[in-house]
Simulated scan of single mutants.
Amino acid sequence: MSYIELSLQIDLDFNEIMMAELAELGFETFVETEDGLEAYIQEELFEDLAVKNMLETYAERTPISYAFKQIAKQNWNEEWEKNFQPISIGNDIYVRADFHEPQPNYLYEIIITPKMSFGTGHHETTSMVMEHQLTIPHQDKKVLDVGTGTGILAVLAEKLGAKYVSAFDIDEWSVENTIENIALNNTSKIAVRLGTIEDEPRDKYEIVLANINRNILLQQIPSYATFMAEGATLIISGFYEADIADIQAVAESVGLKKVAQLSKNQWASVVFKS
C-alpha cells in the first residue's frame, strides 16, 4: 500500500491544530519534526485540492511551506518513538510513553502509546484543558469527551474520579489508539467509539470536554449544550485568544456562562457552565 507524505514547514505552535485539520481530511499518521510536521495518508484517500485549500487558509495566519511525495508504508511506531518525550503538566500530571521510566511522585501518571494520534499533552491546547480538569470535581461525574484523539483527557477524567466517560472520534486510528491507552492506564470506565456528536446517544453529562478547533467549536457548541446537565461544565480549547469573543458569543446564545480562562502562547482554553 502506498502513502502520500505531506512535509509541512510551519510554526510549531500550529502542529497540533494541523494534525486535527489533516485528520479530518483522511491523514492517519503524524510525526512532529524540528520545523513542523510530516503527515501521511493512503494514496487512494488523498485529495490534493482539499489539502491545499486548507493549508492556504492557515497561510493567512502564519508562513507555511509544504511538499508532497509518494512513499511506501513504513514503521510509524519507530518514527514516533524518536520524537516523543515525557512531559509534566503543573505539579500533578506526568505524561509518558510505556518505554519511559515511571515517576511515582506525581499524583496522576498517564501513559500514552507511542502512536501519532492527536493529543499527547505537549501542545498548549491539550495541557490547558488538563489544567482546567484539575480544578473541577470529577468524582462520580459523567463525562463526554468530544474528539478524544489519544484518549488522554478521558483517561485523566477517570483518574480524577469520573464514574463514566463517553469518548468518540471521527478517526479510526484515534479510536484504536484510545483503546490501547485505556488498557495501558488500567482505566475501565471509558466507552470509546468511532463517530461524531450527531450520532452520540442522547444522555446528560456533568462535564463535557472538546479540544478541537475554532470552526468546529463554533458550529457544535449548541449541540454540546444539549448534552449538559443543569450546572454542568464545558471545557473547550483549540483556538486563539483572538477567537474567544466569537466562541463566547455562541456559548452565551445557548445559555452558557464563561467562568474561567487560560492562555498560553496566544492559544486559549475556556470553561463554561450551564
Rank of each mutant, 00 (worst) to 15 (best):
Q85L: 09
M116N: 09
A67H: 09
Y66R: 05
P201N: 08
E28I: 12
V192C: 15
I179Y: 03
Q42T: 10
A251P: 02
L55V: 08
S65G: 12
T33R: 15
L160V: 01
G36V: 10
Q261A: 09
I235H: 00
L49D: 14
V31M: 13
N215H: 08
V31E: 13
A210C: 07
P114Y: 00
N15W: 06
K264C: 11
F14V: 07
A167N: 07
Q219R: 04
K69R: 15
N213F: 05
A251Y: 02
L55T: 08
T120V: 07
W173Q: 11
A59V: 01
I236Y: 01
A72Q: 15
F46M: 04
D171K: 08
F239L: 11
Y58I: 05
Q74P: 15
A20N: 12
E241W: 10
E200A: 12
Q248R: 09
S223E: 05
G119M: 02
E172W: 12
T113E: 05
Y108S: 03
A157M: 02
T113F: 00
R61S: 04
K141R: 14
A67T: 11
A67L: 08
Q74R: 14
I89D: 00
M19S: 14
Y58C: 06
K52S: 09
Q219F: 01
N265Q: 12
W173T: 11
Q261C: 09
L144E: 04
F14R: 08
I235G: 00
A67S: 13
E180A: 03
E43A: 15
G147M: 05
I64T: 07
K69S: 15
D243Q: 09
E124M: 03
G36C: 12
E158Q: 11
E241Q: 14
L12H: 10
F30N: 09
E101F: 04
E5R: 15
E56N: 14
T29C: 09
I244Y: 05
A251H: 03
E180L: 02
I235R: 01
G90P: 06
E109P: 00
I112D: 01
F46Y: 04
A59L: 01
F68M: 10
S7E: 08
I89R: 00
E56F: 09
S188M: 14
E172N: 11
M128W: 12
D11C: 12
A191F: 14
L144H: 03
A183K: 12
Y240V: 06
R61E: 05
F168M: 04
A97Y: 01
L234R: 04
T113Y: 01
A154G: 13
A157N: 02
F14D: 08
G121Y: 00
G238H: 02
E230N: 13
Y108H: 10
I10F: 13
Q70N: 13
E5V: 08
D92L: 01
I89M: 02
F227A: 06
E38F: 06
V208P: 00
V254W: 14
N15K: 10
N215M: 06
S188N: 15
E109R: 00
P63T: 13
K189F: 05
